[in-house]
């Protein structure tokens, strides 16, 4: 067991982990941050997507010990203290970009990383960026639409009905 410390959503945290403990397990099991989900075991689905030191990371692909000293952002840190949703979260609700909600935290964190480096992505760029995030409910239509809307683009022309 090794003692690790990091900053998660702006708070200093620490814990004891085995070498094999994944970052996602540390977040869920030790910190109780269960918004980050596990949907596969091959780093394909992206339900566990977080940011580590500002970079998009699948938290099932990283050992907890590797995040020693890092700044980690998870879905729980996205809304404001008073509960106001972030622009991306609000767009997901406005455009029905989620159904069962299981992939949603990963989608929101992936969208955040995309818009930080590409503030006005095209449809093709959004779809390409979501290559590592699988949704089984929405057929992606409203996820792509929500992310484009969150970037300030007019999505009124996108076929809905």
């Amino acid at each position: 067991m090794a003692k690790i410390s990091m900053k998660v959503n702006g708070r200093d945290v620490s814990g004891e982990v085995e070498g094999r403990t994944l970052l996602v397990q540390f977040l869920r099991d030790q910190l109780g941050l269960t918004g980050t989900h596990v949907g596969c075991d091959t780093s394909q689905c992206g339900a566990c997507t977080v940011q580590v030191d500002g970079k998009q990371v699948k938290s099932c692909t990283m050992f907890a010990a590797e995040a020693e000293g890092a700044e980690v952002s998870t879905i729980e840190g996205e809304a404001a203290q008073d509960g106001t949703l972030s622009a991306i979260q609000a767009a997901f609700q406005e455009h029905h970009g989620l159904q069962c909600g299981f992939c949603t935290p990963g989608m929101v964190m992936a969208a955040k990383s995309l818009l930080e480096v590409n503030p006005k992505p095209t449809e093709a760029e959004v779809r390409h960026h979501l290559e590592g995030n699988i949704c089984r409910c929405t057929g992606y239509h409203n996820i792509v639409k929500a992310i484009m809307a969150a970037s300030g683009q007019d999505v009124g022309a996108i076929a809905a009905e």
């Binding site: 596969c40 091959t42 779809r127 057929g139 792509v144 076929a159 009905e161």
Partner: peptide
């Protein structure tokens, strides 16, 4: 038996859909 071998549809595999329920 994994997403490495079972091809789930990804965002880039599908277009925007036109749907009508009128």
């Amino acid at each position: 038996a994994s997403y490495m071998d079972y091809a789930m549809p990804r965002a880039s595999d599908v277009p925007f859909y036109k749907v009508d329920h009128s």
